[in-house]
Amino acid sequence: MQTKIEKRVEMLLRDGRGAIVCALLAFVSAAHALESDSEQPIYIDSNTATYDDKAQTSVYTGNVVTVQGSLRVDSDKLVVYLKNGEISKLVATGKPARFEQLPAEGKEKIKGEALIGEYYPGKDLLILKKEAVVWQGGNKSASDLIHYDSRNALIKAGEKSSDAKRVHSVFKPKPKQPQNP
């Protein structure tokens, strides 16, 4: 019996949408976000927006597009948490919420999706939860939990505490160059 994640990986492979960032933890050395991304302002566009000064939260709904440098997140809803006037956390939800980021000039974009995405701009950390999938080029990983730390060029998937929550990865070989006769 296939899990939702395994079905999602198969669906993504069939529809031709690429795959994840190199081999988790060690294979990701080239995958760090453009250095200037964290220094850029965060732009949010949505159908509706509300701000609660007492709770220091903003809620955006309806076709929410969030951009910071080369990082883009598309979601159904976004909750922004402030601390001392600074954004401490953004939580994007959707069916699914999607992200993409250019890791470096000349590299392929890193893309991902999940039902919940938590972004910590001060740490350059994106945490994807529930039916999470991340891909780059011909490589892909899927799990219920994926951490993408663009500052340190690190991707972690899965949970050590649970054998039931497996990580599913696919690595496609690069096409061989034809040899000259």
Results as ranks from 00 to 15, higher is better:
36 S>L: 10
37 D>M: 02
38 S>E: 07
38 S>M: 06
38 S>F: 10
39 E>W: 01
39 E>G: 13
40 Q>E: 13
41 P>N: 12
42 I>K: 14
42 I>G: 13
42 I>L: 15
44 I>H: 12
44 I>F: 11
45 D>E: 14
47 N>R: 08
49 A>Y: 08
50 T>M: 12
51 Y>S: 04
51 Y>Q: 07
51 Y>H: 10
51 Y>D: 00
52 D>N: 15
53 D>E: 11
54 K>I: 15
54 K>F: 11
55 A>R: 12
55 A>V: 05
56 Q>R: 11
57 T>K: 14
57 T>A: 00
58 S>H: 03
58 S>R: 08
60 Y>P: 06
60 Y>F: 15
61 T>F: 00
61 T>A: 04
61 T>V: 05
62 G>K: 05
62 G>V: 04
64 V>F: 01
66 T>Y: 06
66 T>Q: 12
67 V>M: 03
67 V>W: 02
68 Q>G: 06
68 Q>E: 05
69 G>H: 09
70 S>M: 01
70 S>I: 03
71 L>A: 04
71 L>G: 04
71 L>M: 15
72 R>Y: 11
72 R>A: 15
75 S>L: 10
76 D>T: 15
76 D>S: 15
76 D>K: 14
77 K>C: 06
77 K>G: 02
78 L>S: 05
78 L>V: 13
78 L>W: 10
80 V>S: 06
83 K>D: 14
85 G>R: 02
85 G>P: 14
85 G>I: 02
85 G>S: 07
87 I>S: 02
87 I>P: 15
90 L>K: 13
91 V>E: 05
91 V>D: 02
91 V>R: 08
92 A>H: 08
93 T>E: 08
95 K>T: 12
97 A>F: 01
97 A>E: 02
98 R>H: 11
98 R>W: 08
99 F>G: 03
99 F>S: 00
99 F>I: 00
100 E>N: 13
101 Q>V: 06
101 Q>F: 01
102 L>D: 01
103 P>W: 01
104 A>P: 02
105 E>Y: 03
105 E>C: 04
106 G>H: 01
106 G>Y: 04
107 K>L: 14
107 K>Q: 15
107 K>P: 05
108 E>R: 11
108 E>Q: 13
108 E>D: 11
110 I>P: 02
110 I>W: 08
110 I>T: 14
111 K>T: 12
111 K>R: 15
112 G>N: 10
113 E>S: 08
116 I>Q: 14
116 I>D: 03
118 E>I: 09
120 Y>P: 11
121 P>V: 07
122 G>H: 14
123 K>M: 14
123 K>F: 05
123 K>G: 03
124 D>F: 01
124 D>R: 13
126 L>E: 03
126 L>T: 13
126 L>R: 07
127 I>R: 08
127 I>G: 01
128 L>W: 11
128 L>C: 03
128 L>I: 02
130 K>C: 00
131 E>V: 00
131 E>D: 14
132 A>G: 03
134 V>D: 00
135 W>L: 05
135 W>S: 09
135 W>R: 06
135 W>F: 11
136 Q>M: 09
137 G>M: 07
137 G>W: 09
140 K>F: 10
141 S>L: 13
143 S>Q: 08
144 D>M: 07
144 D>K: 10
144 D>E: 11
144 D>Q: 07
146 I>N: 00
146 I>R: 07
146 I>E: 07
146 I>M: 06
147 H>L: 09
149 D>H: 06
149 D>G: 10
151 R>K: 15
152 N>Y: 03
154 L>R: 05
154 L>S: 09
156 K>W: 05
156 K>A: 06
